[in-house]
């Protein structure tokens, strides 16, 4: 049977069917990928010159909320080194820029101005003013998105020098 014509035909059939199945699955997988138009809409420029200290500004980037928080000098003064390492410096001022989603299950935490921290209403997680998780369930700090500082503006989605330094230091999330 192994070497017979029938066996050969069986193997050819199996090979053709296999190629067809793999090709079909590949096409199906690719059809579910995000569309080019969705991916292309991935750069947002934000002017931070008018942002007030200790007032949370929420921008939208790739459909996600981006937290932009200008820190007051008092907040900067009492920060730990780990917190300062996550600060984005724009025109000499310290900013928190992060994706405003709880790292537990993606809810949006609220900023509490009197306590300088974030509280997630879904499952009670908390983050400090640098987006570092201080109370479970969130397992990690809020993520810093790719950014590039250009004068008094910041481009979200582009990797600039400050972003690369944070990436090397491993403080992005």
């Amino acid at each position: 049977m192994e070497n017979s014509r029938r066996g050969f035909m069986g193997k050819v059939f199996g090979a053709v069917a296999g190629v067809g199945a793999v090709g079909t699955l590949y096409a199906m997988k690719k059809s579910w990928d995000p569309l080019p138009s969705v991916k292309a809409a991935g750069f947002t420029t934000v002017d931070v010159s008018t942002v007030e200290p200790n007032k949370l500004v929420v921008e939208k980037w790739r459909g996600k909320p981006i937290f932009i928080l200008k820190k007051t000098p008092e907040m900067v003064a009492k920060q730990t080194e780990a917190e300062t390492a996550r600060d984005v410096i724009i025109d000499g001022e310290h900013f928190l820029i992060c994706i405003g989603l709880c790292t537990h299950l993606g809810c949006i935490p609220a900023y509490r101005e009197n306590k300088d921290d974030f509280k997630c209403a879904c499952h009670g997680g908390e983050f400090d003013a640098s987006g570092i998780n201080t109370k479970a369930p969130p397992p990690s700090p809020m993520v810093i998105p790719p950014f590039n500082v250009k004068g008094k503006t910041v481009v979200l989605g582009e990797e600039g020098d400050q972003y690369r330094k944070m990436k090397e230091a491993g403080v992005l999330a």
């Binding site: 579910w32 990928d33 995000p34 969705v38 459909g63 996600k64």
Partner: peptide, 17 residues
């Protein structure tokens, strides 16, 4: 997650599928 949604967040592709 992005593959399932067809977007970074739930959007048109997500609703359609």
């Amino acid at each position: 997650v992005e593959w399932i949604r067809g977007d970074y967040v739930p959007g048109q592709a997500f609703l359609d599928r």
